[in-house]
Nucleic acid binder design. Structure first.
Length: 290
DNA sequence: GCGATTTGACCCGG
DNA sequence: CCGGGTCAAATCGC
C-alpha cells in the first residue's frame, strides 16, 4: 500500500524532473537564439522571444512548484522552521490544513473521476476478462438492494493503467450483475502480455463498441476472452477500445489534477489557485537552485 | 511476509 | 448538505 504510493510518487517525480530538465535545456537554447536574433535584427519589439522565454520560465516554475509539493514531506521541517519565504510557508500550511502533507494524517486529497462510463453490461454468469482487478471499496447505494463494488486495475500504479469498473448486483433470482467500466486498460499483464489493448483500425471495429461519451448499455460481450485468469469474485467482462490513449493522462497531468492548479501572471508570480496565495517565482525556484 | 480484501472514515461534486 | 466515490488501516488468506 505505502510502497504503491511511493512507487507512483517516484514515477511522478522522475517525470517532473525530466520535464524540468527539458525546460531548462529549452531555456538555454533560447538564450543562444536570443543572442543571435539580437545581432541579426535590431527591431526586437517584433520578436516573440521575450514572450517565449517568459513562457519557458513559467513552465519551469510549474514543474518546480509541483516538485516542491511532491517533496514537501521531506522539505517541510526545514522549510517551516527556517524559510524566509512566507508564501511557501503559507502554501505548506494550506497543504497541511488540507491534510495533503502530513503522513500521519489518514487522508490525502484525491481527484474524483468525472469521466463517463466506457461501457456497461448486465450478466448473470461469472465471466473472466483476463485482467487483474483490485477491489478498493464497496458501498451500499441509496436505491439499490445490494452492495456496489469498486475495482481498479491491479497495475494502476505500476503501469499507470486507468481502467476501473463497478459491479452492482441488481437482481437476486436469477442473480444479475451490472458491470460498468470506466477508462481503458493500458497495462500489460506480466502473465498475459498478449492481452494489452491495441488501438483498433476502423475496419476492425464493426463488431466493436464506439467509445464516445455516451453510455452503451446492456451490450452482449462482443469479446469473449480466451483467457480465464485467476480473478476472484464478481463477473468479469472484456473491453476493447478504439481510442486507447484518449482518456489517459500523463504523469504530469495526473499530478496537476491531483490537487493544485497553478496559474501565472506576467509579473512572474505563480498562484496556487486552491490556496489563493501568490508565490514568487524566484522564491520557489530558489529552493531548487534555479 | 506479502498481496488482496474489508470496512469505516473522509472527500467532493451536484 | 447528501450521497457516491475513494482512501487507507486493519484484517484475511495463502
Amino acid at each position: 500500500m505505502g510502497s504503491e504510493f511511493s512507487n507512483g510518487k517516484k514515477a511522478m517525480e522522475e517525470e517532473l524532473m525530466r520535464g524540468r530538465d527539458m525546460a531548462n535545456q529549452l531555456l538555454e537554447a533560447l538564450g543562444h537564439d536570443k543572442l543571435n536574433t539580437h545581432l541579426q535584427h535590431e527591431d526586437r519589439s517584433k520578436s516573440v522571444l521575450p514572450f517565449v522565454e517568459d513562457l519557458v520560465r513559467k513552465v519551469l516554475c510549474s514543474f518546480t512548484n509541483t516538485l516542491l509539493l511532491l517533496n514537501s514531506n521531506q522539505l517541510t521541517p526545514s522549510l517551516s522552521s527556517s524559510t524566509n519565504c512566507p508564501q511557501i510557508e503559507s502554501l505548506l500550511q494550506t497543504c497541511k490544513s488540507r491534510k495533503i502533507l502530513n503522513p500521519n494524517n489518514r487522508r490525502r486529497c484525491y481527484k474524483r473521476k468525472s469521466i463517463s462510463p466506457t461501457w456497461e453490461k448486465d450478466s448473470s454468469i461469472l465471466i473472466e476478462d483476463g485482467y487483474a482487478w483490485r477491489k478498493y471499496g464497496q458501498k451500499m447505494t441509496l436505491h439499490a438492494k445490494y452492495l456496489r463494488s469498486y475495482y481498479r486495475c491491479t497495475y494502476k500504479n505500476d503501469q499507470r493503467c486507468s481502467a476501473m469498473k463497478q459491479v452492482q448486483r441488481i437482481q437476486d433470482d436469477p442473480p444479475l450483475y451490472r458491470t460498468t467500466y470506466y477508462g481503458h486498460h493500458t497495462c500489460r499483464s506480466p502473465s498475459n502480455p498478449e492481452i494489452i489493448l491495441e488501438p483498433l483500425s476502423p475496419s476492425a471495429s464493426s463488431t466493436l463498441l464506439s467509445f464516445n461519451n455516451s453510455l452503451h448499455s446492456k451490450q452482449e460481450n462482443p469479446f469473449p476472452s480466451p483467457l480465464l485468469a485467476s480473478i476472484k469474485q464478481e463477473p468479469q467482462k472484456v473491453i476493447r477500445d478504439e481510442h486507447c490513449a484518449q482518456n489517459q493522462l500523463s504523469a504530469l497531468e495526473n499530478l496537476l489534477l491531483y490537487d493544485y492548479d497553478v496559474s501565472f501572471d506576467y509579473s512572474r508570480n505563480a498562484t496556487f489557485l486552491s490556496s489563493g496565495e501568490p508565490v514568487q517565482f524566484e522564491d520557489v525556484c530558489g529552493q531548487f537552485g534555479f
